[in-house]
């Protein structure tokens, strides 16, 4: 059992839900990413999804695209991401997932990628352009290094594939709330709750919902059904809005606390 699985077990015992935060590694710089992880952990964030910036992030909306391009321009590469992961691991025990498109993994080498992941204290791997049908090789290697590969279910997933994905996904199942790319939405689809109930019936694995989540009321409703929520673009936007400001970290942490329903004086 790795840190992700232990985390969900612990949350279940405490009857709590997971709050997962996505950060583009190196946006706006590595130091900020590192402090953010530490502070978010202190603020009660349960899992960090660390995005390896990619030139062609086709599942992402504008905000994450821009943050990715920004980080790449600043010279963030895969070695720097691993270095940051292992430094983070020395100071916190927060479960860490890497989110990357498939091509950088192929280029780096599947086996080498998994070894570096394990050695840097990474627990999970999320690959938006790798469906289970194409993942045979990577699953075998991931397993031998103890890395959980997390798969997606979307509103268009049905039938046999639902079961297949529930079976293959380790750590948790990533439910994509809507048909679309990442990015904050005012409203989530009306059939979301019903869809999630269906999924929860066929699997006992933790299900976390991502894409579009940007408001506390959305999270409150989702927590009634699922095991966690994933917030990405809304956090990236908060970082973007506070670029260059001395209280960026505090603003982001406050935002997370507000999302979780803490009654702080959120501005």
């Amino acid at each position: 059992m790795n840190r992700i699985e232990r985390k969900f077990k612990e949350l279940k015992r405490k009857r709590q839900k997971a709050f997962v935060v996505f950060l583009t590694c190196g946006y706006p710089d590595l130091r900020t990413t590192k402090i953010l992880i530490k502070e978010l952990y202190r603020a009660g964030v349960d899992i960090i999804e660390l995005g390896i910036p990619f030139s062609d992030p086709l599942a992402d909306g504008k905000l994450i695209q821009e943050s990715s391009a920004y980080a790449l321009k600043k010279g963030i590469d895969i070695f720097k991401v691993f270095k940051l992961a292992s430094e983070t691991r020395r100071i916190t025990s927060i479960p860490l997932c890497l989110l990357t498109y498939y091509n950088p993994i192929i280029c780096f080498g599947l086996e080498r990628f998994m070894r570096m992941s394990r050695d840097s204290g990474v627990d999970g791997l999320i690959i938006p352009d790798l469906p289970p049908e194409e993942s045979k090789d990577i699953l075998k290697i991931a397993k031998s290094y103890g890395i959980s590969v997390i798969f997606f279910i979307s509103p268009t997933t049905s039938g046999e594939r639902l079961k297949l994905i529930c079976n293959l996904s380790r750590g948790f199942i990533y439910y994509v709330s809507l048909t679309g790319v990442t990015g904050p939405r005012e409203k989530l689809p009306v059939d979301l709750i019903d869809n999630l109930k269906k999924i929860k019936k066929i699997t006992s694995k933790p299900v976390c919902v991502g894409f579009g989540i940007s408001r506390p009321d959305q999270i409150k409703r989702l927590y009634k059904i699922v095991d966690g929520v994933i917030v990405g673009s809304a956090i990236i936007k908060k970082i973007k809005d506070n670029l260059g400001k001395p209280d960026l970290i505090k603003k982001v942490v406050d935002f997370v606390l507000w999302l979780r329903g803490n009654k702080i004086s959120y501005v």
Binding site: D129, L130, P131, E133, R161, V176, T179
Partner: peptide, 20 residues
């Protein structure tokens, strides 16, 4: 039937597109 020309091809897309 999986869209492979020996090792090349396949279907590397976000889950949402798999059904269509």
């Amino acid at each position: 039937n999986k869209g492979y020309f020996e090792e090349f091809g396949g279907r590397f897309v976000p889950e949402t597109l798999m059904f269509c």
